[in-house]
Nucleic acid binder design. Structure first.
Lengths: 265, 265
DNA sequence: CAGTGGTCTAGACCACACT
DNA sequence: GTGTGGTCTAGACCACTGC
């Protein structure tokens, strides 16, 4: 039954409405959605960390006092959202960017022929890295208050020796306390992997606003293009579990021998 | 059982391997996937047309000789891919773009504040429309042979009086036989709706390559910007059911007061 | 009211991984 | 072999739609 069960133990046991009182639509949601929320909470609180094995479907079913099928449907949705990874015969793992063959989490840039991986690792050059008080626009994008501490990073990525991406990254000072230019420079591997392993911050989704802009003097110098050269401007806000913005990134991409690839459906 | 059933009637009845012969992995696929393919075929052949009601889960289960749950899982996937639409209490419908509140199927352009719908309907101006023999690059993109008949269309879209998009569209001559500039000019509603209702061609997904380009003389004149102005170049290939390319579109977007919005996950 | 999709359960068996 | 996720079934009941 999807309705009542003894309100005891750890069980979800259906907070669903039932009975006499002509209730005012008390926000019904199916059991498997409630289970999904509970699992999500365990992901957020770090009960199971990125890369770790979560309890089996049978265990979760027992814990929440529902059938295995209901847990399965909850996990199905989490897997569809790339929050967990199922592996037949082994179990279900919390999704991770670290130690994985996913080099570029959100970067959609592709060489006009081939793929980024075939171009070898990017050369990374950190131009600047400092702590500062958030200006109004940055604060708004990161759901902070103006003047809160933020960390700003500017870097250039080059592929096969050609500087291709100039990006500014802003991170909230709180969650990323202790992040230094030194650490960024010495870390080998994707930046998002560092965020996970060192700060426990996992980016779940992102939104981008894309424009065409003319290179200004600074961009032109760093990307080695003429002033006025058209560049792709990509402004990205990345979110962690609770739609909480955790990173703002403004990138300028050269698109002379690369393009931004997007799939629509 | 997922294995054998009498090989009779219309039934899928599990082509799955079983028994003695040490087979050479004869391409196993789960029953619900086989059902999904069968339903897809009915969509492709037009047994059920866009907007129409497809048979109920129970009917399909009977027809394919499987349980309702198996049909359900197949339809679940089709719904996740936006190929069908489920409506509780009514049934499952073939997805459609026509007569729907989805004005822009693949267009990701947004005003810097608000959304496209709030800007009212776009003003459409057809610059050119002609039949021609496909050059090599167009033919390749549309999976045609060089010299095959294609239809080329050039138009400008303006929002609130400001010319914003200049696009060239190429369509294969075969499936779109009979499409004229006249018909395009007089049709009210999304172009993709016209494709469905008049030619039975439904676009299922698309790929885009995005770059920043400087406006040339032609683009500058039509979009009323200075020559050299950075524009967003969006090259889109749209596919119908069987990953068959059916449209090539090269758009130039002004991004001074609009941006291209993308969601990543 | 009957018919549809939506949820939940319980049990069976399959495919895979580790030991 | 044991335990995991993956598939398939059958039946129950709920929620919505339209007659």
């Amino acid at each position: 039954m999807a309705t009542t069960l003894s309100p005891s133990t750890d069980s979800v046991a259906a907070i669903n409405e039932l009975g006499a009182g002509a209730g005012a639509t008390p926000a019904f949601s199916p059991l498997y959605q409630q289970i999904k929320v509970l699992i999500l909470q365990s992901l957020q609180t770090g009960e199971w960390k990125p890369g770790e094995l979560i309890p089996s479907e049978m265990e979760l079913a027992a814990r929440f006092r529902v059938s295995q099928g209901t847990v399965r449907k909850a996990i199905d949705e989490l897997a569809a959202e790339n929050l967990v990874m199922r592996r037949q015969g082994k179990g279900t793992f919390v999704a991770t960017h670290a130690e994985q063959h996913v080099q570029y989490r959100f970067l959609r840039l592709m060489p006009d022929s081939g793929d980024l991986a075939s171009e070898g690792p990017a050369q990374r050059q950190i131009i600047d890295c400092k702590r500062l008080r958030a200006p109004a626009d940055i604060a708004r994008a990161l759901a902070l208050r103006t003047g809160d501490a933020v960390l700003q990073l500017r870097r250039v990525l080059a592929f096969q020796g050609i500087p291709t991406i100039l990006e500014d990254v802003w991170l909230p000072g709180g969650p990323f306390k202790g992040l230094t230019a030194e650490r960024l420079a010495t870390y080998r591997g994707p930046m998002y992997a560092l965020f996970e392993t060192e700060f426990g911050v996992r980016m779940v989704r992102a939104e981008e606003k894309i424009r065409a802009l003319a290179a200004d003097a600074t961009a032109a110098e760093l990307l080695k293009v003429p002033v006025g050269e058209p560049l792709l401007s990509v402004e990205r806000t990345a979110y962690t579990y609770n739609d909480l913005p955790m990173e703002l990134r403004r990138g300028l991409y050269r698109t002379d021998i690369h393009h931004y690839k997007n799939e629509l459906s």
